[in-house]
Design a protein around this nucleic acid. Structure first.
Lengths: 245, 245
DNA sequence: GTAGTTCGATTGTCCGGACATACACATTGA
DNA sequence: TCAATGTGTATGTCCGGACAATCGAACTAC
């Protein structure tokens, strides 16, 4: 079986990227079956009219994604396991949407408040300086699923309530030209207080899943701090990890 | 300020790796301050007597780790944020130990059982075939912290109870020559049953943090399936994420 | 003064080659 | 029979160069 691969040299898309996408598609589509060898790099490069470094760059990106495994003296083969998606800096909104849940958002609060000590420390701004505060209720199938409380530094983005109800916060930030880079997260659990129970239609004392997150852009600025609580019967965190070798 | 960098060509350690380690150390140590430019690649290569691709490979590995950011036409600079550690495929034991908690483990069960449907599906073995089952209680400061129930395929590793109490499961597997590759994890929460409460010295109905994980080695084989419950007052999941661009 | 343009600097992409290293397998030897 | 050795093949590392794309700043023109 010969895999059909080709590159378009007139395209502005980098050659290694064209190749890696085709390989990834072939794996996803099943044309490259798990465990199968990929053929050696030299020959592959010759077949495509590319140099070996370019082919290696394409392969390496898929190795980094966990789709391929290289073995010296053996070859490169497709990992045969149910690799879903590696852990991304994901938003709840996108998670739900990709699960076909058609999420709804109700904005409870959208205002500017002085930063508390906790918020100031997380965002790296002065205490009592102005920060945006938004509180949202995320619903799926009409049922409350999560309560989201977020703080953003001022002058970063203007938060329109209508937009917040139509899409997710991360998507808004990205379309505002902010390139998200990393986030620090803590996931825990606790018993619901009376107020929390009321918000999420749970009983007081019921277990809640909690997540706190500080998100940074590519310059290292903190761009968002959030405290979220989820109903564990409706949501859990699910992700794939890769070892860093 | 000139950063002291040098490579040892007689060392078997790859040159790019030597360089990346020195740069990482310099960042960690503070010699390279956040936001500072790294100097252009050409000049850096010349100074070290290396080629540009080698220098680029070193820098790239740190970019992948989230320590550096490249900007075309500008240069490469150190990310200025409190980057802790990226999310690793971590073991609870290592987590605790690195936090200086001196964890203790009590092995409750270490036996071989026929695989249930759930376990068989997770490990990719036939139902009712033999699998190892181990149940452990993880303690810190004499207090129970987590209850760990794990299943392993047979003939992979022999599980000595004494060893299990002395170290973590992941460390045992690694030293048995198994190279961990990826894991699929689910984190949730639920109320403790009477049995769970008893084990963890909690009250019935108290919130518990739960984690299920299937771990794969580099050939894609499932090598471990685990169901863990944590006391949320004693433990929470904390990690750093990077965006995949 | 402001907007548009040019230009230098720096990374991004790609090439072709060379040698080292590790693994699998066949061969050889005891 | 079994272990040690050799051999082929594939990836790992490294080199030196070339041109393109992009960013920032200085410069120019209105």
């Amino acid at each position: 079986m010969e895999l059909e691969l080709s590159v378009d040299r007139s395209s502005p898309v980098p050659l290694y990227f064209q190749l890696s996408q085709q390989l990834e598609a072939a794996i996803e589509h099943g044309a490259l079956t798990p465990g199968s060898l990929l053929g050696n790099e030299i020959e592959l490069a010759a077949r495509l009219g590319l140099s070996r470094p370019t082919v290696r760059q394409a392969i390496q990106s898929l190795v980094d994604k966990g789709l391929l495994v290289r073995r010296r003296g053996v070859g490169t083969q497709v990992v045969h396991s149910q690799v879903k998606r590696p852990l991304e800096l994901s938003s709840l909104y996108d998670d739900l949407e990709s699960a076909g849940q058609r999420p709804a958002t109700k904005v409870l609060v959208n205002t500017v408040v002085p930063a508390s000590a906790e918020v100031a420390a997380a965002l790296g701004v002065a205490e009592d300086s102005d920060v945006h505060r938004i509180e949202r209720l995320r619903l799926a199938h009409g049922e409350p699923m999560a309560y989201l409380c977020n703080f953003l530094p001022p002058a970063l983005i203007d938060l329109d309530t209508a937009q917040l109800e139509a899409t997710g916060l991360y998507r808004l930030m990205r379309s505002a030209g902010i390139t998200l880079h990393s986030a620090r997260q803590t996931i825990g659990a606790r018993a619901a207080t009376a107020v929390e129970a009321e918000r999420l239609a749970e009983e007081e004392g019921a277990p809640l899943l909690t997540m706190q997150r500080v998100t940074f852009d590519d310059t290292g600025r903190a761009v968002e701090y959030g405290t979220h609580t989820y109903r564990p019967s409706r949501y859990s965190f699910e992700f794939q990890l890769l070892v860093r070798s």
